[in-house]
Design a protein around this nucleic acid. Structure first.
Lengths: 204, 204
DNA sequence: TTCAGTCGTAACCTTTTTGTAATATTCCTA
DNA sequence: TAGGAATATTACAAAAAGGTTACGACTGAA
């Protein structure tokens, strides 16, 4: 590799580990890396210094990668930045589709486009955090999340709130879901919470 | 975006949709894209034409992305190609480490993603310590652990608890596993415990 | 500015988990 | 086969974890 004119790369990804991995790989490859953990920060950074390339995570809370691309394209100053959307693999595809397609379990339906949740066809009222929590859960069923993971992925990596605060929001979410669906949010003792419809019979 | 000297990009990914997506994005960004759906093909292509950058999927059947990187680094001709390993998001990391594949022995199944254990398909109720004990055992079958080792690896190195306490938890774990699986947790007299499906003890 | 909706925390309550000690059993070997 | 050592079981009180509720601080819209 003779020259290295493509120097500055801006990575936009809400998940620190992924960002870190990419950053390390790119730095080892000789690039100058800047990071942003959400679309807003990225847009901000871009105005002050135009990178030569942007790596953008498709799935991000609040403003998705796709939306970030649109905004960049809309602005003449940033319209010509080469963009690479980082998508994930196999099981992740479902998650990506999860942005555009409704997810449904046992009459509980989450519509990511309209950002609405219905139970038996009736609209539920969820606060923003409750909605994002539920979206994370429903797009990752049967997966246990620690409180820290939930904070990272629902609140965002840069805020500091008590872990116990998660419990309170779980409580609020359960309450909002109503008796018919509240047990879909299961407690994983010693760890955190999990969304699951398979309530395998307890052996005893 | 004045010049565009970094032209040729080789994408190595076994999944057509992901490859396609990256290819389209890169081509729109002005790059010249070549594709390979496995490590062998990639190595082959690289010898005939050295790309300016390679995007490599970490998780590929047969030869993993990481292994492909090593091979490229080993060869002086390809050692200096900038590489970007495409990893998936958060949860994938754990899978790469191999922690997350479900483990199963004789109808006893432990699912690390959901943090659940089932016996004959029915959910078992395990306390956090019991779960961690079982996970250690099942991921290290046929290996005897001393009480001290168990304390270190399940409780963590910084706590002080009596060694006898391990016995109590083994008892609880066996009980929770039920008669069909309790003997999988074998006592190694004078040493500690072991998880095994083969009962080699009888010989002497 | 007011009002309703959200949030994060602290406080308090309930349930589960855990560590130990005390007591039974089982093993081995003298 | 008896005795001592190593485990298995049980019971229980303390500690930890999670559930709930209440409340003050914010935020935005009216």
């Amino acid at each position: 590799m003779s020259q290295q004119p493509l120097r500055r790369v801006l990575i936009v990804d809400d998940e620190p580990p992924v960002r870190e991995m990419l950053a390390v790989a790119l730095e080892m490859a000789g690039f100058e890396v800047t990071e942003a953990d959400n679309a807003a920060t990225a847009l901000n950074q871009v105005t002050s210094s135009i990178p030569d390339l942007m790596l953008i995570d498709w799935m991000m809370p609040q403003v998705s990668g796709l939306e970030l691309c649109r905004r960049l394209r809309r602005n003449p100053d940033t319209a010509s930045i080469p963009l690479i959307l980082l998508t994930a693999r196999g099981e992740e595809d479902a998650k990506i589709k999860g942005i555009e397609e409704p997810v449904e379990f046992t009459e509980l339906r989450l519509d990511p486009i309209g950002q609405r949740v219905t139970a038996f066809g009736r609209l539920l009222t969820l606060s923003p955090i409750e909605y994002r929590l539920l979206q994370l859960f429903m797009t990752n069923p049967d997966r246990a999340f620690s409180r820290t993971q939930l904070l990272d992925r629902v609140w965002g990596g840069d805020v500091y709130v008590e872990e116990r605060t998660v419990d309170v929001h779980i409580r609020r979410l359960r309450k909002a879901l109503g008796s018919a669906h509240e047990d879909l949010i299961q407690t994983v003792r010693g760890t955190g919470y999990r969304f699951s419809t398979t309530d395998l019979d307890k052996a005893h």
